[in-house]
């Protein structure tokens, strides 16, 4: 039992935090909102050099061969930076390729690790596919079967989102030979949804942290009544409450990382708890950060709304809260899917 990250994992997190602070400051994130694709190919290549898209790719195929417990801390950093690149979808796609193995994996995994390919994944959690416009390979479901479709064979229709970082599409394709059918396809799609939800939750932690950070910075320098507004208890207590919410969400997300990495029997419920807790914390942080900033925070020029909208779109990614609340209740109340309390407290002794 060791519920902590090791030195190497922390160092990797710090390295990515420094890299993103230098390479994609808020001005860069906002500039991406205004471009056609919202994505930056050369930047993706550099991200691959740091190892991010290839983190889950086996070492034999040029990746880092790590798992979700390593990925969790890195996604916090992409969330903190407000990074608008398909890190989550690609990670989910990599796990599908790993499971499917064979020629498909042999062809695509090295390309992902080197930054020469991006992936997109359609799943039951949403009618929309994120980043379908830049993906080189798309995983799409049709009538219970899973298909791996190259970019040239899909038709996409953009569905602009309030979050300029989020690029959504309705996707059609000519149905060919599936890569998986029946129970296998279902298991792969379930795992993909869980992995994507966990990844989104980890990003939401970073988003929440950034929103709190913005509020603290502002409350420290903004003066009213002759003092910094951050010295008022009304301001302190709002921020303290959301900090509590964030830290307990963090525990759920780290446990979900472990459950996804080890395919734990409780994976579905663990992931749903992580997604709910982290996205609730991010949404609460958004509201409170906005309130602390007051009218200036309500302007387009200020950065609060950039992260606030990240919180909104992450909340909807890989299963909205209605979906995850349903699964939580199925596990805890109906007990139709496995949920057991950490430390073996049976629900019905």
């Amino acid at each position: 039992m060791d519920f902590d990250f090791n030195e190497d994992q922390r160092l990797l997190q710090q390295a990515l935090r420094d890299f993103l602070a230098g390479e994609c400051p808020p001005a860069w994130v906002r500039a991406q909102w205004e471009t056609d694709t919202g994505r930056d190919g050369p930047f993706w290549k550099r991200l691959a050099e740091v190892g991010v898209p290839g983190l889950l790719v086996p070492e034999a195929q040029g990746g880092l061969g790590m798992d979700e417990t390593d990925l969790a801390l890195l996604l916090e950093e992409t969330g903190r930076a407000g990074l608008a690149e398909p890190v989550v979808a690609t990670s989910v796609g990599v796990a599908l390729l790993r499971e499917l193995s064979g020629d498909l994996a042999a062809e695509w995994l090295p390309k992902v690790a080197s930054g020469d390919a991006r992936l997109a994944v359609g799943h039951a959690g949403s009618p929309f596919v994120a980043d379908a416009h830049v993906a080189d390979l798309l995983f799409l479901a049709n009538e219970g079967a899973l298909h791996a479709v190259p970019a040239a064979q899909v038709r996409i229709e953009a569905q602009p989102s309030v979050d300029g970082s989020q690029r959504l599409f309705l996707v059609g394709f000519d149905v060919g030979e599936p890569v998986a059918e029946g129970d296998l396809a279902q298991a792969l799609l379930d795992a993909a949804l869980d992995r994507g939800a966990f990844c989104s939750a980890a990003e939401a932690l970073g988003v929440a942290d950034r929103l709190i950070e913005l509020a603290v910075e502002y409350a420290t320098q903004r003066e009213q009544f002759g003092v910094a507004i951050g010295s008022f208890q009304a301001v302190k207590h709002m921020l303290a409450d959301v900090k509590v919410e964030l830290e307990y969400a963090r525990s759920h997300v780290y446990r979900a990382a472990h459950s996804v990495a080890t395919a734990a029997p409780t994976r579905a419920v663990d992931v749903s708890m992580a997604k709910l807790a982290a996205c609730d914390a991010a949404n609460a942080a958004a509201k409170i950060s906005l309130q602390v900033h007051g009218a200036i925070g309500y302007t387009y020029e200020q950065d609060v709304h950039v992260w606030m909208k990240r919180a909104w779109s992450l909340d909807l990614a890989y299963g909205d809260s209605v979906f995850h609340r349903g699964r939580l209740c199925a596990g805890v109340i109906d007990q139709t899917i496995p949920a057991f309390a950490f430390g073996y407290q049976p629900l019905n002794p």
């Binding site: 003092v227 951050g230 921020l239 900090k243």
Partner: peptide, 13 residues
């Protein structure tokens, strides 16, 4: 506790 969190964890004045 909220004061402690705000001042000693978040660093508010």
């Amino acid at each position: 506790q909220r004061n402690i969190i705000a001042e000693r964890i978040l660093g508010l004045p």
